[in-house]
Computed example of a mutant assay.
Amino acid sequence: MLGHPTLYIGVALVSAALLGWRANRGWFGVAAATFGVVLLLALGMPFAMFFVNQEPDLLVETATSSEVHTMLYLTIYGPLLATVGALVFGVPLASLLARGFTGQAIVESLVDLPLVVPHSVAGILILFGFGKHGLFPGMSVLTTMTGMVLALTFVSAPYAVNTTREAFESIDSGLEYAARSHGATPFETFRRIQVPLASRGIVTGGVLAWARGVSEFGAIAIVAYSVNFFYPFTGKETVSQHAPVYILDTYRSAGLQHASAVAFILLVMSAGIFLVVRLLTGTKSGGFL
């Protein structure tokens, strides 16, 4: 069957139908299981075929490339800076949104707006907002780490804010009232009650924001297609590209197999980071991570 992957579809559909029937839910169970498997196949088969068609020698060559190492560093570091910024400024805002205030609908709309803005438009907005004629005329945005971080913060902040807000909303307001009644200031209540109880949601929001930053292409292609930054492993300025941009350039210049090798390394790295975060935070398999 390895040479005929289409056969897996038939086997999976028949297996799903049998499982649905054995669940004693009649024809509805059969239909539900079959439709569910169709979606799972659409999601899972690209990954399966991607992994089984990798060339080991090319993977080793890619994994040992200094150029790829520089790209991976930029792909981790840039989104990490954006995530830290989104959490530092977004967590207090999420706390306010969870409790409500006058004009909240306007603020929520502004927070959610980057979710519906086309990615390339997000890059153009960053240039208008922070470029030559923006808020800080003297700040260099194009092809810089600053521009990259601003673009990534713009597209990833909604994930950090909204997930953290949901965590704050799940906290029993009676605990905050009790803290205030015992003399705690609003900041002390926020620091000692709200943040510890919402820490799982804050971490989840941070991970989602980081993952969103890693996958961003459109805004980065506009603002920082190639990025000039300090690379600590060489101790000097260097130029590299964010992973989605780098993979596209590799696909154009070297073909699908070379691009897929880079993508494989990126997927393994991202999965490893998610696993480490899950282990460090004690997140159970049923959560976002």
Rank of each mutant, 00 (worst) to 15 (best):
A157D: 12
Y8G: 10
V161F: 02
A105Y: 15
L59A: 10
F154D: 02
I124L: 09
L248G: 02
A178G: 13
G131S: 02
E237I: 06
K132P: 07
T34H: 02
M49F: 15
I76N: 00
L150Y: 07
P137L: 01
G29D: 06
N162P: 02
H242N: 08
L110C: 08
W210F: 01
G138L: 02
G10R: 09
L280F: 10
F47L: 08
F89P: 03
S253E: 12
A94K: 01
G10N: 11
R22Q: 13
V161W: 00
L40Q: 15
L125C: 08
T75H: 08
N24T: 11
V30P: 02
I76E: 05
L72M: 07
W27C: 08
A32C: 12
F28D: 11
L58E: 12
L19H: 01
A184H: 11
P118W: 09
F230V: 02
E169G: 04
L275E: 01
L40V: 15
N24M: 13
G255Q: 13
G36T: 04
I265K: 06
D112T: 11
V214Y: 03
Q54L: 15
N228T: 12
N24K: 12
G201W: 05
G123E: 06
T70P: 01
L279K: 13
T153L: 14
I265V: 11
G201R: 03
V245K: 01
M148F: 03
V207G: 06
L279A: 14
G10S: 10
T70W: 11
S173V: 15
E237N: 08
L72Y: 07
M45E: 05
L80N: 08
T238H: 00
S140F: 07
P5S: 01
L279M: 13
E67R: 07
L39V: 15
L125F: 02
G183Q: 10
M269D: 00
G129S: 05
T185N: 06
Q104W: 05
L110M: 13
I222R: 07
I273K: 05
V37C: 09
T283V: 12
T250V: 13
S270H: 07
V277A: 01
M49I: 14
S226W: 14
S285Y: 14
I124K: 05
V227M: 07
V239N: 03
T189R: 07
T64I: 00
V121I: 00
K236P: 06
F101I: 02
L150R: 00
A48K: 10
Q257S: 15
Y77F: 15
K284H: 11
I126M: 04
L152D: 07
F101Q: 04
Y159C: 06
R278H: 10
G85A: 09
A263P: 01
R252I: 13
I202P: 03
M148G: 09
E216Y: 05
D57T: 13
R22A: 10
T102I: 14
A263T: 05
L279I: 10
G10P: 09
T62F: 03
T153Y: 13
A209R: 00
G235F: 05
S65E: 08
A82E: 06
V207Y: 01
P244A: 00
